[in-house]
């Protein structure tokens, strides 16, 4: 038994689990913000030509610049403007807008995939435009968009690891701290990787079940 092995105790595992909790906490808030904003942006981009043109640069830039740069850039822009909101809030904001950008794309393609005849049939039955959207278009588009949205969610959950760069101690940063303490890099990283894997795998498994239930 290596002498280091003693140092790698239950408290290290607990520290990693706390990190995993913070990963989930950041992920949930960023995904919630991103989904609500993404649905809104997706509807605007589908139904308003002016809105689509105005939003195009935001979508384009968030998808063409590495997320890590977006995080550092927004953090420093907020800093020099005198807003010190801390890594969690900045992380939720940047990751949320990033998630919203991808979600809006998924929502837009879902809305566009609803056949025109279905929309017209709804109106012909006497539904108002709003009723038609809420009861006919949105449920169909939602089902089409769901698998794509799950992919976005999985991506965002993994991307929480980048918020460490502005000082948020999530799972990967926590594992790096434990490695520095114990020098047991392989075991600690294997545990961290296992936790990420379980989180992502659980989400995909639930998503698959929801998808089959919808059919």
């Amino acid at each position: 038994m290596s002498p280091y092995f003693v140092e790698l105790g239950p408290q290290s595992l607990w520290y990693l689990l706390e990190g995993a909790g913070r990963t989930l906490w950041l992920g949930i808030w960023a995904i919630a913000l991103g989904t609500i904003l993404g649905i809104l942006l997706g509807c605007i981009r589908t139904y308003s030509r002016v809105g689509a043109i105005l939003l195009a640069p935001l979508i384009d830039i968030t998808r063409s610049v590495p997320l890590i740069i977006q995080i550092v850039l927004i953090n420093s822009a907020l800093g020099i403007s005198g807003f010190f909101w801390g890594p969690f809030v900045v992380g939720v904001l940047v990751l949320g807008v990033y998630t919203a950008s991808y979600t809006s794309e998924v929502v837009r393609s879902g809305l566009q995939a609803v056949p025109d005849v279905t929309k017209r049939a709804g109106r012909a039955l006497g539904l108002t435009g709003l009723q038609n959207f809420v009861f006919i278009i949105a449920p169909i588009a939602g089902r089409i968009a769901f698998p794509g949205w799950i992919n976005v969610v999985l991506g965002s959950l993994k991307d929480t690891s980048l918020v460490a760069v502005i000082g948020y101690v999530e799972l990967l940063r926590a594992s790096q701290i434990v490695i520095t303490q114990t020098q047991e890099a392989l075991i600690v990283l294997a545990v961290a990787g296992g936790i990420y894997f379980v989180m992502c795998f659980a989400i995909s498994a639930v998503a698959k079940r929801v998808e089959t239930m919808q059919r």
Partner: peptide, 15 residues
């Protein structure tokens, strides 16, 4: 596909 790319880099660099 189910772990962050940064984790994969850590695994090779530290692990």
């Amino acid at each position: 596909r189910n772990t962050p790319c940064l984790f994969q880099i850590y695994m090779l660099y530290f692990g």
